[in-house]
Every structure is written in structure tokens, then in C-alpha cells.
Design a protein around this nucleic acid. Structure first.
Lengths: 203, 203
DNA sequence: GTCTATATTGTGATAGAC
DNA sequence: GTCTATCACAATATAGAC
């Protein structure tokens, strides 16, 4: 199915995601979404009533992507260190495919923290369940000597930060060489688990 | 000198920083800055000509704050691990006092990466010098077995991420208890260096 | 320097023909 | 469902009195 044959509603959502994610709610113009979708501005309102409603549809999907999906890995009985490797690899792969999701989601949440709770509820998202089950497992492992909350946040920070700070890091460290930067990101799939496991495993 | 006695230009800059940092360039209204400063909208243009110019003044200062100042620590001959402790402690302390700086700076840079170079040049900022001198030092230490670029980015990510993701983390991990969250941040001044040093020191 | 009033343009949203 | 035309208001910026 070629791009031109997509239903109008799908074309709008794709275009809206592209523009909203790059420019944010405040920076996005309805006209630009219409242009991106190759349709008329009025159709946006016909399908989504208002800019706010269209934004919510986009944000909900982006937020769901952003929250790591780890239920299967966490609940399986593979070794703990292996779970870390799988998580980092999977999550960084997702970020490579959606590099602008983190700064978009985090900016919008900081811009309007009040909406966070309703967003999560409307999406049926309960990240605290995943996090708590992860934390519980970490606590049960006697080999580890670290507050699981710090461990989880360290891991997330190391995975996400390069994508959020990409323009600076790419410029300062890699002379704006995109390929070199992306190669470096690939390395981190191995480097981050190594770094974590080195730190927390018994000496 | 009480707040009401400040020069008008200073009052404007303070108000503009407050509003821009919280709402971003696109989300900020000149009227709101005027209200925050307790003056008339026209005065903003009298002092800064345009919204863009006023924004640049605010952004330049925020960006300078955001770039870690480490020259003294790096150039001194204190032990390497101690330098890490000092850096993390100093940088997190700055972030506690300016918690919204990271998401503001990183959002605006992602929104308009082209401006990054001119911003840095106009500010005389050369973060690559600091970074490279830090990397050089790291490479010279034979005790360490890690790519210095990964080490630096890991450290920055662990320091900055909790501030960027604060609304989510505070909600999910700390039931929106502000005090508990800030206490956790304080812990990280010790936890992050411990985590790093555990990982990279010779076994 | 500071204010009020106004110009000018941009932008979300709607009405109505087809 | 899709388009053109237009409304209503918001927002940056300027003119001019004091």
C-alpha cells in the first residue's frame, strides 16, 4: 500500500506526528501539518475537531513508545545481567528508530505536568507496576549492592541522554559527523550493560 | 537592593528568563513577561527590540550555565577519582538551583540546531576544549579501561536525566512527594561517583 | 523611559459550496 | 469527504503622547 493510498485519517496522524514531534505543541502550525499530509487545513478539524485533540492523539502514541516495554523480559527467568543487556539493546534500538521521541515527550510533560496523570490513565499505562516489579527483582538478588531506584535511573539516563543531547554531542565530539555519532550509539548497546554490570557485580 | 528597585532592564531579563525557561520560545507570550516584570509590554521592545533578541539574551545565559564549568578541577593535580566526585557534586548542586535549565536548553537546541554554533561562538564557549582535555587525562590513566567518550556521556546522562524526567520519576517512584524526590537527588551526589568508580577501577 | 492606542500579521476554527 | 472563503481573536511590533 503506497503512501498516497493511505486513508486520510492515517495520513493526518503520520503528518501530525512528524511535525508535533519535531516542533512541539506550541511550535506547530496546523497549516504545516496539512501541507505535510498533502491535504487541506479544514480536513484536520473535520477529523480531529481541534489542534489539542490532534496533539493528544499524537502524544499518547509517543508516550506509549517512550515508556520501555519490559514486561516479558522482566517476568522471564533468564539471568539478571542478561535482562539488563536485553533491555538496553531493545530500548536503544527503539530510540534509533524514533530519535526525537524523548525530547518531545519530556518537553511536553515538563510544559504541562498536570496532564501527565490523565494521559497515563487514558492510555492504561502503569509504568510504576513495571518499575516496581523490576525493583523487587533487583532487591531479591543478593549479589547486588545498590539502591534499585538509582540503578534504574542510571540505566535510563545513559540510554536516553545521547539522543536528547545529540546536536551538542555530535558537534563537540564528532565534528558533526552523523555516521560517527550513530556508530557510537551502536557501541553503547554493549558499553552500557558492561558499565552497569562492572559496577554492581560482586568483586 | 530590593527586587522593586532593580533597573528595568534587569527586571525584564529576570522575568524573561523565568517565563522562557518554563514555557520555551514558542510557548512564551511577551505579555506574560511584561506581567511578570510588572511593566508594560512596549518596554520589552524598547529595551530588546524583538522577542527573538530577548530570547537570545536569555538562552545565551542559560546555555552558559548548562555547560559544566570544570576547567579548574580538570587542570589541578588532584586524584582522578576525586575529580569525578567534585564534578558530580558541583554540577548536581547547580542543577538543584536551576532545575529547568536542562530541558529548556536541550529542547531549544533540538528545535533549532542550526543556531547552536553561532550561539556558542557569540558566547566564546568552547566546550570541546574542556571535553578533550578531560578525555586526554582519562586516556593517560592506565588504570581505566573505558572509552573516555562513553565515560563522560554516562556521567552527564546520570546527572542530568533525573531533572529532565522529574515529573515522571517523581510520580512513578515517589508518589509525587517532592521532598522525597529531592532527597533522592541529594543521594545521587554520592551514588553516581560510587557507581562510576566501581565500574572503571581496576579489580 | 514609560505609557496607551493601534497597526499588521498570523492562526485556529467554522460556514457553506460541491 | 474535501475544498474555498472567511471569521474572530491572539500576538508581535510600532507610533506617538506624556
Amino acid at each position: 500500500m503506497s503512501k498516497i493510498d493511505l486513508k486520510t485519517e492515517t495520513k493526518i496522524l503520520n503528518a501530525a506526528k512528524k511535525v508535533f514531534v519535531r516542533k512541539g505543541l506550541d511550535g506547530t502550525r496546523m497549516q504545516e501539518i496539512a501541507d505535510e499530509a498533502g491535504i487541506n487545513k479544514s480536513l484536520l478539524h473535520y477529523y480531529f475537531r481541534s489542534k489539542e485533540k490532534l496533539f493528544e492523539a499524537v502524544f499518547n502514541e509517543a508516550f506509549r513508545q517512550f515508556i520501555p516495554k519490559v514486561s516479558e523480559a522482566i517476568e522471564s527467568d533468564i539471568p539478571f545481567f542478561r535482562k539488563i543487556e536485553i533491555f538496553v539493546d531493545t530500548y536503544i534500538s527503539m530510540l534509533i528508530n524514533n530519535p526525537h521521541i524523548p525530547i518531545f515527550v519530556l518537553h511536553e510533560i515538563n510544559r504541562n505536568p498536570d496532564k501527565l496523570i490523565s494521559f497515563m490513565q487514558s492510555q492504561g499505562l502503569r509504568p510504576e507496576i513495571l518499575l516496581k516489579s523490576a525493583m523487587k527483582e533487583i532487591e531479591q538478588k543478593r549479589i547486588i549492592n545498590i539502591d534499585p531506584r538509582h540503578l534504574v535511573i542510571n540505566m535510563l539516563g545513559m540510554c536516553i541522554f545521547p539522543f536528547i543531547a545529540k546536536p551538542i554531542l555530535k558537534g563537540v565530539i564528532f565534528n558533526n559527523n552523523e555516521k560517527a555519532f550513530m556508530n557510537f550509539i551502536q557501541e553503547r548497546k554493549k558499553e552500557i550493560p558492561k558499565f552497569i554490570i562492572n559496577s554492581i557485580k560482586k568483586k
